[in-house]
Amino acid sequence: MSEHLTGFGLGMRRPHYRSYIEGTAPVDFIEVISENFMIPGGKPLDTLMKARRNYPLALHGVSLSIGSADGLRDDYLKELRRLVDMMEPAVVSDHLCWTRIDGFNSHDLLPLPYTEEALDVVCRNIDRAQEALGRRMLLENPSSYIAFPGAMTEWQFLAEMTKRTGCGLLLDVNNIHVSAVNHGFAAADYLAGIPMHAVGQIHLAGHVQGEHLLIDTHDQPVPEEVWALYRAAVALAGPVPTMIERDDNIPELEELCAELDIARGIAADERIAA
């Protein structure tokens, strides 16, 4: 197996491909969307293969659909396994959500009700995915715009899920903030309920204020509230590989790296404080 993730990374996005291929981007690891590379061949795979020689890699999926009541798809797992074997990533992750039901695929990260039934479904699917991939996965907390009545909070659900399946967590600090504002819970309660030993990676991103709700757009710099929450998270979790997701309105690489320096600074402060 390949190296562990450490330090500070970025999502590898097209405008910056050259810097990753040449190995000049000053980051400790890169993350890509798995599905963009679950293809037979050609330039995208060639690019990733070259970048991969320079940086440890995280594969981040959006279509596993771990919360589907009708289970996972064999063909998806097979294709993902093929990519994992080819790229030997340090981390394979997806989201605590669902995207597919019956023959329909929404291509959006849809919310789950935090019920005992959903927990059973999710854990069964995680067991199956981890077996098919031959490795542990990280599951990311989503941002959401609807909260269904359920027996537990999102953090209780995540804690129970990691306990039952042995999976790890990809903690998206921006998503915690977005959902906390949208659903009116305290982000501090959320952090306090997360089993920090299970957190294998942290995401940072920006959002926008919609008419009624915060919308997780990944098209803005990381805002102050998210930095504050990041500080609180690393105080609890210790050093965790951290990266910024920027999917739209993508600035120069230097600008993202400057943002990443803020994360480095916060993590260093908290290490001293500890």
Partner: peptide
């Protein structure tokens, strides 16, 4: 869960008010 996910699909596909209501409506 299965019914909730089918209701959600119906909402996304049809965009009909009744489908949104099944999910609790709201913004």
């Amino acid at each position: 869960l299965l019914n909730l996910q089918r209701d959600f699909r119906d909402w996304l596909v049809t965009g009909e008010d009744s489908a949104a209501a099944a999910l609790g409506g709201g913004p």
